[in-house]
Nucleic acid binder design. Structure first.
Lengths: 126, 126
DNA sequence: CATCTGATATACTTATTATATATCAGATGT
DNA sequence: ACATCTGATATATAATAAGTATATCAGATG
């Protein structure tokens, strides 16, 4: 799996890494049970600090996306289907609100949602 | 319209204000053509700096949500329906990816999207 | 003409982000 | 047993972002 880091982007590096791993899991490039590279190795590969990777891993762990038990390498979690988490729910509501501000109608929005869903889950991402 | 600012929140104040105004427009509390309070007055009301309000207004203007011509008070823009802007499209894709990571299925996600749409557009927001 | 508006400049403080070293204890492979 | 890996953690430092405070400016308003 390849993750692109742009140190000049406005988005913080740890967020870019977080988003990249989320996309990786959602697209099936990172499968449940699979191990992630160690924080140190990934940091070296990406040319960033170990602590920055650690921060991303820690947030992913706190939200249940990866498991980091007993000092083994981080592993993709197996999540049982559940309700949409609060944090995600707020993000989604803001997306919907902004779409409404742009005059997007309900069916266009839900279609964009479905299209994204299939595209990502199908692994068709750049 | 009421906007809540939490200076202790992790989200920057200018983002909280941006989001609040987006929700205000989407929910119909702020109607197209309607004037926003002046940056100075709003800053005073919210107990924050004029420059912070200015920053939010500037981003809203740059994305076409408000109009600030000829030194009149900022006004809600009338947006003609168009494609989903790139920035919003990326936000939405990340929401969808994170939903997939949580094992949310497509119909649950699109339903959440629809529910949010109707709730926000209907003005049923906290 | 006084007063409002956003635009802009400067200066300053604080918080966040990112980095570099270093230590620690548990786990791993030999 | 032993060297080596892991994440967890601590400290320090630098760079950037966020937020505030004052001030000036020109256009618009009444």
């Amino acid at each position: 799996m390849l993750i692109k880091i742009d140190i000049y982007a406005e988005k913080p590096i740890y967020e870019q890494l977080y988003d990249g791993i989320i996309i990786g899991i959602a697209s099936g490039q990172l499968k449940a049970g699979e191990s992630l590279p160690s924080a140190r190795n990934l940091a070296a590969d990406l040319g960033i600090s170990f602590h920055t990777v650690n921060k991303s891993y820690d947030i992913l762990r706190s939200r249940g996306y990866i498991i980091m038990n007993r000092r083994k390498t981080a592993m993709i979690a197996v999540k049982t289907p559940q309700d949409i988490p609060e944090i995600l729910s707020e993000k989604l509501a803001l997306c919907v609100a902004e779409a409404i501000c742009n005059g997007i109608d309900e069916s266009t929005l839900t279609k964009a949602c479905s299209d994204n869903y299939r595209k990502i889950k199908g692994g068709f991402i750049e």
